[in-house]
Design a protein around this nucleic acid. Structure first.
Lengths: 198, 198, 198, 198
DNA sequence: TTATAATCGAGACGGTACGTCACGTCTTAGT
DNA sequence: ACTAAGACGTGACGTACCGTCTCGATTATAA
């Protein structure tokens, strides 16, 4: 039953396997950078990685799996919550992380794919979204505790901050600067901004 | 020369043509509602419209053209700038418009497609984005004139408001309520909110 | 009933109609010269003639009809039977006629189309073949009367002579010369050749 | 590089592949028998063979390739030169081979296609023609050596004999009989016929 | 050290959709 | 009354990837 598929399960210790993995994943980001997720084909990835098409299929059965694999490092950055003492600054730091991710092809592909209706992607993407939003909620929960914002504003601010940064390049030719991240944070956390300034 | 491509140019007077157009466009929204833009195939649209595939190609040479056609009514709603006297309320009205659009399959497809790297879409989508953002800028320019916000905050607020509303359903199971639109507007325009309150 | 088709039946007196006919027919030979009968499309003919596609269809409902129209002048040359006194020379003259026709694009298309299995062509082509073979039979019948060949050889010789000339360009880069026509005639009618020589 | 086109190159060991090949080729001759080469569509061949259309394309990229494949056995018959001692009889044997081939749908398609102007066919067909004419030239070269014909008559006789037989069914309802083959050979090789008779 | 299991490359296949071309028919105008 | 122009359904084209399967051929891990 498991044999019928002959699917690759884990990464072998040997150098060969890990090289294949590395080659495929970097080929994937390369392919994502031109064409985005919509233009991502297993065929092209395999060719770019110098690997047989079936080999890719064995380890990553779907396009979504490939995306997930390549997305992991970006999401890992959201696993640490900044804590500088100032909510406003914490938020700004998070926005900078978002910006850094959004500049990478994988990051672009993420926002592109997050709108997809495909079932396989839906789960992956909503999980990733929650992971990315988590530090925002953490920082803003602290802001609530410091009485800088009302509790019921928390989610709204997280929403505005996160997507404001994610979608920045949609409307602006250049990526967010650090100063603009600060502006955005101050706009959304006026009380915290005052505290930091004075 | 016009003959050389044998492409359908305008809608004929006859009932036949206009019926075809209607059938195809509504089939397009139907197909968009399941599968989104990524899952939109001319084949399926044609079948759902009870029309031959080539007929679709003649009038809408690309998938993007089909999307543009079906998107037009939504974008038209952004052509009127609300003017209720209160900037905060104007903004809220715009957010409600965004929400209404985002609930429709065409609207979802719009945000999905706007992230695409495809050349044909790029132009169409950036034009649509500008059209959708225009009323936001108009309303906020009035807010600047009323000294409710700083001039340099204008674009930033437009950005946060627009994408905050557009991406709402990414993080929330239910669409924006009118009250939430008000909250969002007040958060972004605190001075104008005060004015309206007093 | 007849109106439902709205088919053009005869050539109108006016200059316009006859001009259309001329333009289409010469466009047809032009198209035949590149692509042959297999590559002949109504679309291309209409465009080359500067005429609408439907106009062509009305007057020549099928590709075969177009071919027939353009073939007529070539077949007309077979309606006169040479009579120089020498069977051998008569045959040579016929072979030269075949060669002249075979050099024209219509002639090439004729031999190409004559092998077709299409029903509409079958009739047209077999009729044309008979018309082309008729003078051969006439000349050879005279040869039989002159006791230059056996009666039962008549059809065989006609067959060899006609197709030998028609298919000449299949195996030779240059068309038949007059001398080669003579050689061929003498080979097939040795008795008549002797008579002419002495 | 071999992967880049994903084209089927050779016949695999497995029974599957060879069965596909067999099915497609016999379907091709079946389709040729109705419609001829002009009416041959990959679509119909695939359907008749119970095979997917793309599978056909992979192994035989063009219609011409399909024809060539199906033609090969017929052409192979021309690779052996008859040598019965009598030039006249040798020629008759060749004519019978031509007749046998011309009765098969592939043979009909061959003569049909040989008149085509298509580039892809041109090469294939001229090569096939040379292959078919080769034994004629061989037999007639022997006849020259036996002083039965003049050297400069050789090609002319080959031309007349070959095409006379090939085109036989154009003008006759029934295929060539063996006796008629003999007649034709004797007509073209009178000296050799005498030798055989005495 | 040699089995044994995991992984890979290669070739082939059925299948879906693409975008294009030409077909032949029909309707609606425009002279 | 003809022709023009526009539109449509239809069939076939050749291509691109898809996802699956079956073979060997390698390559590691373990008896």
């Amino acid at each position: 039953m498991a044999d019928s598929m002959r699917r690759t399960l884990g990464v072998q210790k040997g150098a060969r396997s890990s090289q294949v993995v590395k080659a495929v994943l970097s080929a994937t980001t390369a392919e994502l950078s031109r064409g985005g997720y919509a233009g991502l084909t297993i065929e092209a990835v395999a060719k770019a990685a110098g690997v047989n098409r079936t080999t890719v299929y064995r380890r990553w059965p779907t396009r979504a799996a490939l995306l997930a694999a390549v997305l992991e490092p970006l999401l890992a950055r959201y696993d640490v919550v900044p804590d500088t003492g100032s909510s406003c600054h914490d938020l700004s730091v998070l926005l900078q992380t978002v910006r850094d991710n959004a500049e990478l092809p994988e990051g672009q592909a993420f926002t592109e794919a997050s709108r997809s209706t495909s079932a396989e992607l839906q789960d992956l993407m909503s999980a990733a979204l929650h992971r990315a939003l988590a530090p925002f909620h953490a920082v803003l929960t602290r802001a609530v505790e410091r009485a800088e914002i009302e509790p019921e504003q928390r989610d709204l601010i997280a929403q505005l901050a996160f997507f404001g940064a994610v979608m920045w390049t949609q409307t602006h030719p250049k990526p967010l600067t650090d100063a603009e991240c600060d502006d955005m944070a101050q706009l959304l956390l006026p009380a915290a901004a005052d505290a930091g300034t004075r």
